[in-house]
């Protein structure tokens, strides 16, 4: 008997698959692809109308150059590296903040729940751009952070609120009987989370968390306003010098796209692996 109706210790199919498809990373990628395609279409038709002088041959040098048999990374490649670094740190800090916010909101502490709820509401109802400025002009100088870390922190605190909601929903999807069975064995709250609840909740969280990481990559472009030398800033600088605006922006969009698609594929594999 593999799937007995009398086997309620296995969550019912609805709760197992309660990861909604619009939360899945793939949908984000699709959305983004459509967006980029529309932008491309607009650019091309606009360019034709304007009699734009395409100079694609000039683009590769901004990615990589070979000078005297030596490989030199161009500004776009260096910007991509900064974007990757920014995203990498932000993912780690976002997850830590998200987990803390979720646990706080699920805790018995009244003030803890209030703080977590206030944080989520404040972050969700303020534009990211304003938060970045706030961090740059107010918190940065107070804490003595440089631009890069201001960017990381602003992004993490923004996305952490969303990650917190995802993690909380995942934890709440673990049925009450599981908590009770663990508590009856004498597990502490911490042990319950570690050995019983999170192992069941994490597979459910993975697809929406992938969506958050993808949105992090996209939103990392916003830190260009505080002149972190990320992909978007480098692109703006190149365009200011060369006026290759269409070519460079299209190239940059394709780089972001490639990056998020690659991530979705990795996440899909990971998810498959965790569920198996």
């Amino acid at each position: 008997m593999t799937d007995s109706p009398l086997a309620p210790s296995r969550p019912p199919p609805e709760t197992r698959r309660n990861v909604r498809w619009w939360n899945a990373g793939w949908f984000d990628v699709l959305q983004f692809t459509v967006f980029v395609a529309a932008l491309l279409g607009l650019a091309v038709s606009g360019a034709i109308g304007m009699g734009y002088n395409w100079q694609w041959y000039r683009v590769p040098e901004y990615l990589v150059r070979i000078v005297g048999g030596e490989l030199l990374w161009g500004p776009l490649a260096r910007g991509l590296l900064v974007t990757l670094e920014l995203t990498g740190w932000s993912v780690l800090i976002t997850l830590a903040i998200g987990l803390a916010a979720a646990l706080l909101r699920l805790s018995d502490s009244l003030s803890g729940r209030f703080v977590a709820k206030a944080y989520v509401e404040a972050v969700r109802s303020t534009p990211l751009l304003i938060q970045v400025y706030l961090f740059y002009f107010v918190l940065g100088p107070i804490l003595g952070l440089d631009r890069f870390w201001v960017g990381v922190l602003a992004l993490s605190i923004f996305e952490g609120a969303f990650a917190g909601e995802v993690i909380r929903a995942g934890i709440l999807s673990v049925r009450r009987g599981q908590w009770e069975a663990g508590a009856s064995l004498g597990l502490s709250r911490r042990q319950l989370y570690r050995s019983v609840v999170l192992p069941q909740a994490v597979p459910l969280m993975l697809p929406p968390l992938t969506g958050i990481v993808i949105s992090l990559i996209r939103n990392s472009a916003i830190v260009s306003v505080i002149a972190v030398f990320d992909l978007t800033t480098e692109a703006r600088n190149i365009i200011a010098e060369t006026f290759l605006s269409f070519e460079i922006w299209i190239t940059v969009a394709v780089i972001y796209l490639a990056f998020t698609v690659a991530l979705s594929i990795v996440a899909g594999r990971l998810e498959h692996h965790v569920r198996a």
């Binding site: 309620p8 210790s9 009770e180 069975a181 508590a183 009856s184 004498g186 502490s188 019983v196």
Partner: peptide, 20 residues
């Protein structure tokens, strides 16, 4: 409380085994 609970076994109607 956890010290007391470890000395009290409990069996539920829905078994509540850990599925993972």
């Amino acid at each position: 409380l956890t010290e007391v609970r470890r000395e009290i076994g409990m069996v539920f109607q829905e078994f509540n085994l850990f599925p993972h």
